[in-house]
Design a protein around this nucleic acid. Structure first.
Length: 882
RNA sequence: GGGCGAUUGGUUCAGGGGUUAGAGCGCCACGUUGACAUCGUGGAGAUCGUUGGUUCAAAUCCAAUAUCGCCCACCA
């Protein structure tokens, strides 16, 4: 016995300790090493003020699996961690904090506020990293980056300036999405649309200079205050005569023209549309075409402004209510109908956004989208699963310009300066001393900051030192795979792709692995408001990180949502316990002075050859699965191998040798037990890093920790089909005997002799060899092999196998009615199988067209079932005649 | 209005042209054999949503359809 392991698996005893051990020994570290091939993954930077949730746990587990696997394969594996400053979210939290102190942003001033935000960041910014450590992530913490770091900020400015100089960043008055709660512009991607039951109001506008009205329909009556025209379709006969005339805006009294524009849908509403250029993107365009000018009626906090006359100061919804009342009172309201329409909400605070005209900074997307599309179409970018490629292309094909300026303080301030005398715009990293146009020194910087995603878009290269031409950048970029949730394809994936192509001239990663959402056991999204979130840290605390990791990667497929069940975590904890105890068994039986020399192949027994062949196949399959990102399948195979083949069969088969007299045989068994365990641990390590490392370090003769051990390769020589076949027969026989005995309720402790009847020489040999197993695993005390039933008494239990029949003389214990029932069931099964096989074989098409191998296989089956059937029928006949 | 996904034993999910369609949990029966009751042995339980089609062969491919879910979209 080498060393004691506790009787049950207790992850708390070693998880933190091992993480420290790995970290301190710098096994996570990756450095430029021209002798090795690089393998790079950029960790999606979590929000600096965030906490670990199941989504993080899922995608970081997958990343860790890939990184650990590649590291073991000998790659220089860099997993780049870091955090995102999350401007809007962090700013909101800091605002909330100072609000509790009775202060607002203006009380602190810009500098004071930013100071406050840094304090907050420093205080909470480490949390998520510590939480990630609990999960076992093997990222290179020495390279940790923050999007507001100096280098990364420099990259942001560099990109901004380059794009501006190319004319791809511009400033303009456009309709943007305004969040009245966050009081900033947000991009289209940050708006969530939700279908809402609402109303549509039909309002008549009197005509000037003549009797009559023109009736329009609107879902936002308060915007009447900003109307500058009424539009009809040029070919709409109903309104042809009215085009060019003037209508009077109800409640306001403003004279507005009736214009014709193709944008109007004749079938919708009344066919006449009010045009509010400052508060609707379509109306804005119509306004441009007809030079209607602008009339903005909302303040930043969504109240009616001074252009709203008597409604000035009212909140947008109060104003709507009041305006409807007034319209009704003054007889302008024709009717109200129920109407469902989609309303945009701020992705962060869920406030209804307002389309508002505003002077903002934009990225001209078309020229950037095209190469990003091309890269995909040329196969330079793969999505896992593939279907997300369609979503990617669809979005890029319909791309609109990206509003990048935010009216926030926490973030990268625009490197834009204005001359107060001549309004010249200057874009540069440093503040210009004088205006480049009029030489004035009255210069101020734009107060806005950039969309957070502008900096995260640069993450794959800014973290590696760009715009400096660093060695790291040359070596580790482009990265190999990005692992993230499908919900941020638009926010992040797409933007990294076009930014990389634009700045680096190539895609930032070859593969994009998209995870689904982790939902609760009822399929609901985990959310704070529902209170149904499961904290990964609680799960780790109760069951260990390995069990959590295994749960997250099994039983689901990329891009599909999964339900999270504690029962599954428990099952995987039990799996860890199983492995733990199998190891205890191996160690308990190990001779202290066992030599670790290679196994002498001459001494191998059949079960040894079988398990060695099997682990070899599993190595091959798991490696192939991982190469195809089939992580769940890989995990499943390892699980089954350990539990079913190694524990349930091999260990049981080998026990007599361990307790037996032959030192040679015992030692060989020990060596094989160790050899297979060792390879199993390697395969499992990426999935369950803690338990595997802990066990590994308890095994004798370890030179290196598991984390940096060499991944095993498939070895053709180890494959042994002959041994696999033999063992398959033996296992089938054991199962058959156990089955028959249990059906008769015969206790395991009740030993019986077995008589194998067969004329097949090969089978005879196999059974002869298998004697040793039947004793222990099939409750046998004696085994006889013969070609006929000579000497066999009456009334035996019988098990029909392929080319062989087993008789168990347990006369007193057998209920023959039950035995007949059992055989009848056996007969039925064989019958239906025979029918199926014969059906196939009598089909000419099948025999002629199916591959030879497939036909041969069916023929074999037919023969086998026929033989078995014959024996079952004989048995039944014998039993019934008694 | 477009696009996508899911539909497989009680349940949660794998699988993905030829398998006797698998697993975890749950269920039933038996079991304290010197790793493990966080366990062992055996068992019951699914014509893979429906309808067509392609094929020698379909749970798997194609087309419709139903139900549920998601994403995108400027009809006021």
């Amino acid at each position: 016995m080498i060393e004691n392991l506790s009787k049950t698996y207790n992850p708390k005893d070693f998880e933190d300790r091992l993480y420290d051990f790995w970290n301190k020994n710098e096994y996570f570290k990756a450095e430029v090493n021209r002798d090795k091939k690089p393998y790079t993954i950029m960790m999606p930077p979590p929000n600096v003020t965030g906490n670990l949730h199941m989504g993080h746990a899922l995608n970081n587990t997958i990343q860790d699996i890939l990184i650990r696997w590649k590291r073991m394969q000998g790659y220089e594996a860099l997993w780049q961690p870091g955090t995102d400053h999350a401007s809007i979210s962090t700013e909101a939290k800091v605002v909330e904090k100072i609000r509790k102190q009775g202060k607002n942003k203006d009380d602190l001033g810009r500098e004071g506020f930013i100071q406050e935000a840094w304090d907050w960041t420093r205080k909470y910014g480490g949390n998520i990293n510590n939480q990630l450590e609990k999960l076992g992530v093997s990222c290179d913490w020495s390279k940790k980056r923050f999007t507001l770091d100096e280098g990364l900020s420099d990259a942001v400015e560099e990109v901004f300036i380059k794009l501006y100089d190319k004319g791809l960043i511009y400033r303009g008055d456009r309709i943007i999405n305004w969040c009245p709660n966050c009081e900033t512009a947000i991009s289209d991607a940050e708006v969530e649309h939700e279908d809402t039951k609402g109303h549509i109001w039909y309002v008549r506008y009197p005509l000037k200079d003549e009797d009559g009205y023109i009736t329009i329909a609107t879902t936002r009556p308060e915007t009447i205050l900003g109307d500058l025209a009424i539009a009809v379709h040029p070919e709409d006969d109903r309104y042809k005569d009215l085009v060019g005339k003037i209508a009077i805006l109800p409640l306001v009294g403003r004279e507005i023209p009736i214009i014709a524009d193709e944008y109007v849908e004749m079938e919708f509403g009344t066919g006449a549309v009010k045009i509010t250029p400052s508060h609707d993107p379509n109306d804005f365009e119509v306004g441009e075409r007809h030079e209607l000018g602008q009339c903005k009626i909302l303040t930043d906090d969504a109240r009616i402004n001074e252009n709203g006359g008597k409604y000035n100061g009212l909140d947008r919804y109060e104003a709507r209510k009041k305006i409807i009342e007034d319209l009704e009172e003054q007889d302008y309201l024709v009717e109200v109908k129920d109407h469902d329409h989609s309303i945009g909400h701020c992705e962060r605070c869920k406030t209804t956004v307002e389309p508002i005209i505003s002077k903002q900074w934009f990225v001209d997307m078309k020229p950037l989208a095209e190469p990003a599309l091309k890269a995909y179409n040329e196969g330079k970018l793969n999505f896992i699963p593939k279907r997300f490629g369609k979503i990617y292309t669809h979005w890029l094909e319909n791309i609109r310009d990206w509003c990048i300026s935010r009216q926030l303080w926490w973030g990268h301030r625009l490197p834009v300066y204005y001359c107060e005398d001549c309004d010249e715009i200057m874009v540069s990293k440093e503040k210009p001393k004088r205006c480049t146009k009029c030489n004035s020194t009255n210069i101020h910087q734009d107060p806005d900051t950039l969309d957070t995603w502008f900096s995260s878009a640069l993450w794959p290269f800014s973290t590696l030192g760009w715009p400096e031409n660093t060695e790291e950048l040359n070596y580790f970029f482009p990265t190999d795979v990005l692992i993230t949730g499908y919900d941020i394809i638009f926010f992040w994936v797409v933007r990294m792709v076009f930014s990389s192509i634009e700045q680096m001239g190539e895609v930032p990663f070859k593969d994009v692995f998209l995870t689904g959402l982790v939902r609760d056991s009822q399929g609901r999204k985990m959310s704070k408001s529902l209170g149904n979130g499961i904290d990964p840290l609680d799960v780790i605390d109760e069951y260990g990180a390995d069990a959590l990791r295994f749960t997250l990667v099994t039983g689901n497929t990329p891009g599909n949502d999964m339900r999270f069940y504690m029962e599954r975590v428990e099952a995987n904890r039990n799996f860890a316990n199983k492995l733990w105890n199998a190891t205890r068994f191996v160690l308990m039986n190990l001779d202290e002075k066992i030599s670790m020399e290679t196994i002498d192949k001459e001494l191998l027994e059949e079960e040894d050859r079988w398990i060695i062949s099997r682990i070899n196949s599993v190595i091959k399959e798991v490696t192939e699965n991982l190469e195809k990102y089939e992580i769940g399948l890989a995990a499943q195979k390892i699980y089954e191998f350990i539990w079913d083949e190694y524990c349930d069969w091999y260990i049981e088969m080998v026990k007599p040798r361990l307790y037996g007299d032959s030192i040679e045989s015992k030692e060989t068994a020990e060596k094989v037990l160790l050899y297979v365990l060792e390879n199993t641990l390697k395969l499992l390590h990426p999935f369950m890093p803690f338990i595997t490392e802990e066990i590994w370090q308890h095994l004798p003769g370890r030179e290196k920790p598991l984390i940096i051990s060499q991944w095993s390769d498939y070895n053709e020589e180890d494959t042994n089909r002959e041994a696999e076949k033999k063992m398959a027969f033996i296992m089938k026989a054991i199962k058959g005997i156990r089955n028959a005995r249990q059906e008769m309720n015969i206790a395991l402790s009740k030993k019986a002799s077995l008589m194998f009847v067969t004329k097949d020489e090969t089978i005879k040999d196999i059974i002869d060899y298998g004697k040793r197993y039947f004793i222990n695993l099939a409750s046998a005390d004696d085994i006889i092999i013969q070609e006929n039933k000579e000497g066999l008494g009456e009334n035996n239990l019988s098990v029909v196998l392929d080319r062989c029949e087993v008789f168990i003389p347990l006369k007193d214990l057998i209920d023959f009615d039950k035995e007949i029932e059992r055989l009848e069931r056996e007969k039925e099964k064989l019958d239906s199988e025979l029918k199926r096989v014969r059906g196939k074989l009598s089909n000419e098409g099948f025999v002629n067209k199916a591959p030879e191998q497939v036909v041969a296989k069916e023929r074999e089956k037919e023969k086998k079932y026929e033989n078995m059937m014959k024996k079952v029928l004989e048995r039944l006949k014998g039993l019934k005649s008694n």
